[in-house]
Design a protein around this nucleic acid. Structure first.
Length: 425
RNA sequence: GCCGGGAUAGGCUAGCUUGGUUAGACUAGGGGACUGUGGAUCCCCUGACUCGGGUUCAAAUCUCGGUCCCGGCCCCA
């Protein structure tokens, strides 16, 4: 027997229906925020992902040569493809460009709870915020828009337990650069700070010639955690900037987020505000959403534009909702048409076809079963109604409509079936 | 890449400690008993020891390795 490859899954009909249901909820939220959907290839020129990545990214990239000797990689995330798409085909569109996408990504990692090698992301990007308000090019309203949508998406899953934390990587980058950390070693320091591994970060920075006082100041900054009031301790533009983000979130009715200037995220291309959301119901892999503001387009040969984006880990947030006890009841089909006797089979097919033309999901017995077995099958495929086609009623152009939930039945003229079935929805 | 726990029909499992019948039950699936009414009862049928090597007269059972799953570490763009 051949199984799915490690870290991949099959989605059976009930599971798939559930996934589509939530997926469409996310689409709905994105559309109500004025975003439009896009799709990019599942594989790309490997360079797109290698350009700005470190060794860890490469290690987990599904990369290979195709038959034409091209270097190809399965996408490990979708921000880079989205920005490539912007540079290739949307760079002259009116800004800001608001797009969203849903699809699978691939990373060669060790699978564990909430982590798969093929996983699904729902993401959105606001590309090119016009009228930069601050010298780093970003606008608080843009960032607030992204966070507000992320919050709405989490709510769309009905998640009760979650937290959203907002930070700013620009201030931290600036601070460690000013303190004397060389640009090419900033990532090492940021990684320790992200994990709050101070006892490891201190000797590292000392070695780079950072003074003890500066180190303490940097640690203090990453310890800026709490409600929006902690921003009072943050001097200069960043404090002012994040306060504005918070004000816009409040205006939009988004519950007050936590501030955590220690949120560093992937240390790659983020330049300003960064945020993440986690669901404690999950275990080790509890992050369900992450994003921030960045510039990436100039790397792919476009002009430099300021953008903000985020992605929701679809599999994880679904898992979190399940762990909170949420149930999704599959809808199944509307009607199952069966004939009482063999001479009614043509008539049954005719009625099923009529229902289908009316937009009702209808199945018909194609297995030649006797009535009792056909009803049992109808119940198993979660049909809400059985349409029983018998000679007796057919003399008057009617059939028996049986409510599979209650067992109630009535005789309905064939022409009235669609209305009767729809009525009860 | 590292540490730990697992794997018996589609699903849930008994058997494994102490090697020895035809690997048992429940459920699901197919057919029938019931010739116009399902989720009831009964009968019949289909269907499994994760894979490979080793020990042994004999392996689901002991042993080694691979694969996959689960939990954690690392990482998480």
């Amino acid at each position: 027997m051949i199984q799915c490859p490690r870290g991949t899954r099959d989605f059976l009909p009930d599971e798939m229906e559930k996934r589509r249901f939530y997926e469409n909820r996310l689409r709905h939220v994105a559309l109500t925020f004025g975003f439009r959907e896009v799709e990019t290839p599942i594989f790309e020129d490997a360079e797109l992902f290698i350009l700005r990545s470190g060794p860890n990214v490469l290690k987990e990239l599904y990369a290979f040569k195709d038959k034409g000797d091209r270097d190809i990689a399965l996408r490990p995330e979708m921000t880079a493809p989205a920005v490539r798409m912007f540079v290739n085909g949307m760079s002259n569109d009116p800004k800001p460009i608001k797009i969203f996408y849903f699809g699978q990504c691939f990373r060669y990692e060790r699978p564990q709870s909430g982590r798969y090698r093929e996983f699904f992301q729902f993401g959105a990007e606001i590309i090119g915020s016009a009228n930069p308000e601050y010298k780093n090019g970003a606008r608080p309203e843009t960032d607030a828009e992204a966070i507000a949508m992320a919050a709405s998406m989490i709510k769309a899953f009905g998640l009760k337990e979650y937290r959203i934390r907002i930070g700013h990587i620009g201030v931290l980058r600036q601070r460690i650069a000013d303190a004397g950390v060389p640009a090419d070693r900033a990532a090492e320091v940021l990684q320790k700070l992200d994990k709050k591994l101070y006892e490891e970060a201190r000797p590292l920075m000392e070695e780079m010639g950072v003074s003890a006082a500066e180190i303490d100041g940097i640690f203090d900054l990453t310890e800026t955690v709490g409600g929006p009031e902690v921003l009072d301790k943050v001097p200069g533009e960043v404090g002012d900037y994040l306060r504005k983000v918070v004000s816009f979130l409040e205006a939009m009715g988004v519950e007050t987020p936590e501030i955590d200037l220690g949120v560093v995220r992937g240390l790659d291309y983020y330049t300003g505000m960064v945020f993440e959301a986690e669901a404690p119901a999950l275990g080790a892999e509890k992050q369900i959403c992450g994003g921030g503001s960045y510039t990436l387009s100039e790397l792919f040969g476009g002009e430099k534009v300021f953008s903000t984006g985020f992605a929701v880990g679809f599999d994880r947030i679904l898992l979190a909702a399940e762990k909170e006890g949420q149930e999704y009841v599959p809808r199944g089909i509307d009607a199952y048409v069966l004939s009482v006797t063999d001479d009614m089979r043509l008539k049954a097919a005719e009625i099923a076809a009529m229902l289908r033309r009316e937009g009702i999901s209808a199945d018909v017995d194609i297995a030649g079963r006797k009535m009792a077995k056909a009803l049992k099958y109808a119940s198993a495929v979660r049909a809400r109604y059985a349409v029983i086609v018998g000679a007796k009623e057919m003399e008057a152009g009617a059939a028996t409509l049986r409510d599979m939930g209650s067992g109630e039945q009535k005789t309905v003229e064939v022409g009235d079936l669609p209305r009767e079935i729809r009525q009860a929805q």
